[in-house]
Amino acid sequence: MTAQLPRSGPVLIELGARPEEPVQLMSPDARSSYPTDVRARLRADADTVLARYPQPRSALLPLLHLVQSEDGYLTPAGIEFCSDVLGLTGAEVTAVATFYSMYRREPTGNYRVGVCTNTLCAVMGGDAIMDALRDHLDIDHGETTADGAITLEHIECNAACDFAPVMMVNWEFFDNRTPASARELVDALRSGEQVNPTRGAPLCTFRETERILAGFADDRPGALESSGGAGEASLAGLRYAKEHAMSAPQAAVPGEDGHPDLGAEAVADTVRDKPAPAPSATVPPQPGTTETDPATKGE
């Protein structure tokens, strides 16, 4: 006799975005189309961008920044504009726009304040900074202050780990932050003070930043100067590597059979000069050694 499993009801799986995640490029004040004068101005700028690309559709990313500089985020009007200019469907434009986190789906304040909460920045104080700013501004991740000045967000790693914890305002670096210095920074932004990042040119507004990202001239003083290079933490690692003659292995050259030909010299480079550690409290003995194999114990 075969046992029969009890019948269960249907299993319902909810697909799509989380309830709190913005997925529609629409808000109560979002424009569905541009007035004639605005469209003409954007079209002239778009033609400048298009002239840089042999294939028009390659200009989609900078054009999304262009319309974001107009509205502060992506609106149905901006999607329609990019679609018409490039001969793409609205679905194609939206698919790209919703893939990249730099394109906003909701209105953005004058300053997009991002706090890195990836591993290193988090353990160095990034989580504490984010909590402090939530309390200080009385907003949560993704929200904007009532005065329209600050939009607060978590950000992913921006390759500045030697300066952790790091904040970014409109994609400019503010290094080695603390909860206190983070609060001072947002207060200065809200009061209208001119704020300079740790590296780079003086801050401009989110919309001005978006126009620069679209490929137009960055006229800020110091915008084209060097940002100062690596931090002390990275340089310390470099010095250690040089002191111990450490280097990256040579790239393998394909052999006659098409597989990488490492050669005896390259293989030797992959073997450490030091012998394997002896068994200890933290390094257990290997099977088959005199310490574990009764047949060889005592030899």
Rank of each mutant, 00 (worst) to 15 (best):
G16C: 06
E92C: 03
D218Q: 12
E265C: 06
D84K: 01
T145G: 12
T270D: 15
S8M: 13
A268Q: 10
R199F: 14
C161Y: 12
T178Q: 11
Q194F: 07
G255T: 00
L63V: 01
T144M: 15
A77C: 05
P202T: 00
E265A: 11
A241H: 10
P249E: 00
V186S: 04
A51W: 08
S234Q: 09
T144V: 10
E92K: 05
D47R: 02
D273F: 14
E14K: 08
E299V: 09
D37E: 14
S69Y: 10
C161D: 04
N158H: 11
S83A: 07
P28R: 02
A51L: 07
M1H: 12
R272T: 13
P254G: 00
S33G: 05
L60E: 14
R41G: 11
C204N: 08
R105V: 05
P62N: 04
A201N: 02
P28H: 02
P202G: 02
T119M: 15
D261K: 04
L88M: 01
D187F: 04
L15R: 02
V166C: 08
R199Y: 13
D219Y: 14
V115E: 03
T205C: 15
V23K: 15
F163N: 12
G263D: 05
R220D: 15
T89Q: 03
A132Y: 07
C121E: 03
D218E: 03
R211A: 02
E184G: 14
L5H: 12
V186F: 13
S27N: 09
R183N: 07
K297I: 08
A146T: 14
Q250H: 07
Q286E: 15
C82G: 00
T119G: 13
S101F: 10
I212S: 08
L42R: 09
L137Y: 10
P19G: 01
P54C: 02
F163G: 13
V271E: 14
T205L: 12
G258T: 03
R220W: 09
G288Y: 03
L61I: 09
E184I: 07
T144R: 06
L64Y: 08
L74N: 11
Q286Y: 11
A159E: 15
P62F: 06
A164R: 04
T292W: 11
A214N: 03
E172T: 01
A251M: 11
D175H: 15
L88Q: 07
Q250T: 14
A44S: 10
L133M: 01
A59P: 00
L238I: 13
A97W: 07
D127Y: 04
